[in-house]
């Protein structure tokens, strides 16, 4: 037996698979818990009953389906997509600080949505995801151009700083527009802090299909991201056409981010935190990082949202506040560790 050569990838693969059922179990548990807790605490048994033996006369079952389930589903979708988008961005840009929020993509989407709804009075929801996509694509382009202009080129640090400045600027403009349109301000105020409360589930019908396509595309492209993460030269040497691949990945990231923003508003730091945590377990292979990030992101946002709802009853903290509280220290740590 050639023990030395073979086991490493096999063991790695086996270990990698082993995490999937665990994560799925955690995800399912958190999903049920997320539905169970709240202003009216429901026993877990009732929640399970509501799924398998729905009784339209049972008030608790109605709560589960009409009020709690949409929020849990949105948390799963948003958490998974933001984490996946973050993982892909970190791979493509070889930037451990990449995150849809930090690089300005979420504020670009939010800005476009605010402009469309408050300045142009857009009312149809069907167009909103596309507007959000255009916004985040525009913001990504501006951030990249600024980072390229900085002496030293588009390093992780200059890119992140460019992203932060673009976000700050768009944030200031959004606040100004809000103050000028008090009505839209009332409508969008909660949405803009990145909250999962009172989200409209119909938005999911509009953003769901493109997001699903992007999600699958992201998982299919993941093996080539591993190669890309080794550097453009290496990737080209291994036969990867880096230009088209980067364009495809950008499209995936933009669609995912815009969809998540349309659903839950700009939530920060999820795309930063989750891939780093996942990497601790599965290493640097994006075939594993990408699906794990999606699962872990969904579980993470469910968990954070549970905390947001139960931390200071009867009020609710915006989910975005808690993700920032957890994510910002990790961000500082990553910047600090990065010596060059």
């Amino acid at each position: 037996m050639t023990v030395a050569a073979a086991p490493s990838p096999v063991r790695h693969s086996a270990r990698s698979w082993s995490g999937v059922p665990v994560l799925l179990a955690i995800l399912a548990g958190l999903f049920l818990l997320h539905i169970a807790v709240g202003a009216k605490a429901l026993p877990l048994g009732t929640v399970v009953d509501a799924f398998f033996a729905f009784d339209s006369k049972d008030f608790d079952h109605v709560i589960v389906f009409n009020l709690r389930l949409p929020r849990a589903v949105i948390a799963v979708v948003v958490g998974a997509t933001l984490a996946l988008a973050g993982a892909l961005m970190q791979g493509v840009t070889r930037n451990p600080l990449a995150d849809p929020a930090l690089l300005g993509l979420t504020s670009g989407a939010a800005f476009a949505v605010v402009i469309a709804t408050s300045v142009y009075g857009l009312a149809t929801m069907a167009l909103l995801p596309w507007i959000a996509m255009a916004g985040s694509l525009g913001a990504a382009a501006i951030v990249y151009i600024i980072a390229r202009l900085v002496p030293g080129g588009a390093t992780p640090l200059s890119m992140t700083l460019a992203g932060a400045s673009v976000s700050a600027f768009l944030g200031a403009v959004i606040s100004a527009i809000h103050l000028l349109n008090q009505e839209t301000f009332e409508n969008l105020r909660v949405w803009l802090t990145g909250s999962l409360a009172g989200r409209d589930v119909t938005m999911l019908y509009y953003v769901g299909p493109p997001m699903l396509v992007a999600l699958l595309a992201g998982i299919l492209l993941a093996p080539r991201v591993t190669v890309l993460a080794m550097g453009d030269d290496v990737a080209q040497g291994l036969g990867v056409r880096t230009g088209p691949l980067k364009a495809q990945l950008l499209a995936v990231v933009v669609v995912l981010t815009a969809g998540a923003v349309a659903l839950a508003g700009p939530l920060g730091f999820i795309g930063l935190v989750i891939p780093h945590v996942v990497r601790l377990y599965v290493g640097s292979d994006y075939r594993w990082i990408v699906p794990y990030a999606a699962l872990a992101g969904a579980a993470y946002l469910l968990g954070v949202d549970i905390i947001a709802r139960v931390a200071i009853p009867p009020r609710e903290i915006s989910t975005g506040i808690i993700t920032a509280m957890i994510g910002a220290p990790l961000f500082v740590h990553l910047v600090r560790r990065r010596t060059r």
Binding site: L157, L161, T193, I312, R315, I321, A324, G327, V332
Partner: peptide, 21 residues
């Protein structure tokens, strides 16, 4: 500056949480 931005995001999130409270 980046560390400052991270730190301000953290501090600002605590401020927001206090406001919610």
């Amino acid at each position: 500056i980046l560390m400052g931005i991270g730190l301000s995001a953290f501090v600002a999130s605590i401020t927001s949480a206090l406001l919610t409270y």
